[in-house]
Design a protein around this nucleic acid. Sequence first.
DNA 1: TTGAAAGCGCTAACAA
DNA 2: TTGTTAGCGCTTTCAA
Lengths: 348, 348
Amino acid sequence: MKSEEIAKIAGVSRSTVSRVINNYSNVPEDTKKKVLDVITKYNYQPNTSARVLAGKKNDTIGLFIVSIADAFNPNRLYNNNYFTQFVDAVVECANARGYYVLVNIVYCENDYNKVSEVFLQKRIDGGIVIGTERDAEVLINVSKRGFPVALIDYDADEIKRNKSDNDNLIVIGSNDYDGAVSAVEHLIGLGHKDIGLLAGRLSTYSGRQRYNAFFDTMKKHGLNVNEEFVLHGDFIKSKTADEVNKLIQRRKLPSAIFSSNDDMAITAMDLFRESNIKIPEDISIIGFDNIPLSSLVKPALSTVSTPVYDIVDRAVTELISYIKRNKKGFTSFSYDAKMVMRDTCLRK
Amino acid sequence: MKSEEIAKIAGVSRSTVSRVINNYSNVPEDTKKKVLDVITKYNYQPNTSARVLAGKKNDTIGLFIVSIADAFNPNRLYNNNYFTQFVDAVVECANARGYYVLVNIVYCENDYNKVSEVFLQKRIDGGIVIGTERDAEVLINVSKRGFPVALIDYDADEIKRNKSDNDNLIVIGSNDYDGAVSAVEHLIGLGHKDIGLLAGRLSTYSGRQRYNAFFDTMKKHGLNVNEEFVLHGDFIKSKTADEVNKLIQRRKLPSAIFSSNDDMAITAMDLFRESNIKIPEDISIIGFDNIPLSSLVKPALSTVSTPVYDIVDRAVTELISYIKRNKKGFTSFSYDAKMVMRDTCLRK
DNA sequence: TTGAAAGCGCTAACAA
DNA sequence: TTGTTAGCGCTTTCAA
């Protein structure tokens, strides 16, 4: 069934059918109804490819989940707890606004080519990228070619510095630095002085922010950081386990740990438990992200919550407005991260 | 950049460029190389809409996650633990085979119309549907219109009965009945006689299978089912909590519970703990699905594992073969579910 | 082995 | 208010 047939049956021309489909104002009510009746009767739906080819938008946004852990430590599932929330939220927000979502997972550097392919093949009107590595200039290049791109968890300042005039970039994320400061200060307020850090991958924006916030805050409060207490989990489960096990074997523990994300914190909690180190009695721990699992784990993990839904909603809304209004330029948003006190921090 | 420009620069016609893009055999190596060089140099990618309009496939499959809990109990997030694994697996399998994935979530009966729209608008070459409600004939109608559809967790027998000749249906799932039988028999083998059931929504195929298996197995072993021990959680968190709380208040507990999924089992475990009912000492419990969370929870939940990845891989592979070879007809697959013994079942 | 030309189903300028 | 017509960028016959 194509518009021509609908036109014939309704006794009008293809143009009129097109006008009805696109809800143009210059169609009288009765003509409109006549056409609409036929459309409904035959369950007609316009061919998307034809519409797009004739100049309409695709009404599809691409969602790119970057899940490159490390060339030698491929470990995408670990990140899932955090990422899946985004997939869900993006699909929901986009669908609610009449947009479709094409989901792609970027497993390796090489997959970045696939990302630009999707844009260049005109499969989508714009894209949202989550978990971007620092070096992903491919994305910025794509945006320079005229495709709007929303980057989540990326260094807005760095982008702004490198930005050219003809990009279409939206950078959006949470204020991880301040969130991390409040977490560390919470521990300090509880009387902890020997505070350890379970650091995330420093090639990610959030990894760096949370790392810097930790050291800055310790310094600000005149507290020393024992190098043995700085563990590089890199957001990777196996690395985290290695580092935590080494710490346990040294038999000298910090009284509290700030972990750059919940996944690592939970891994650490498991290992501590296995070694009969009690949380929070023997060691306090606070995570970051407030993933669903963090409230289910026992004891429930204290953490810093990032407003995932708000971030996604903003990313989708903003992206769509770039698409629809052919908006250009650079926009950035930052949402506050808030502490969620649960059961893993105790006064020293 | 379009094929015509590439053609001009390479000194050939558009047809030749097209032949190169589509890897046709009747292009001599040097012509091919010449064209490919230009394509690479200008980073050319063919316009998908134009290709599809001219008769090519979309290379996109639709993934429809049906998450209708109940008109009065909208509770999609609860199902997430189970569904997100599918999204991840489908995207991975499809991407690996050169297919894109358009993800849609079906929140309500009305959303089924959106499903057929996606097909009729030719946005996808075929679709995978997960968590289908019994009454979703829309999907079967779509398949009758010539679009291949793969249904996961659906009653193959019922479909076969209603199938017409011109459908394109793939039904695939796990052998939930046998899986549930082995779980219940495991409890019985441990000496349990007062076994309770935490039942899922009976409008789902898996809900019914697990339910029937429970009663059949109890009967087969000559065991009575105490009606007070049959809880209708309906795969919904709040309902599950209500039912479990009521059970606890009655102060008469079964010695073991078979739960129709892990989510409900974990909810129950939390409530039991809060009431100082120890698992597995006071009550044994076994779940179903083997969601990631089930191994993280303390004590780790014994459960029945469904080969999610195999199921998805088969669904994607089969769907693609329907698409590529214009295969027609009905195909069904069933994968065995296997028990995973962990720490929530104890000898009575 | 290649090119010319028709056509895929729609939209949008232009004309009436 | 409506229809005619010319594309949109590709693939694919057909002919050379």
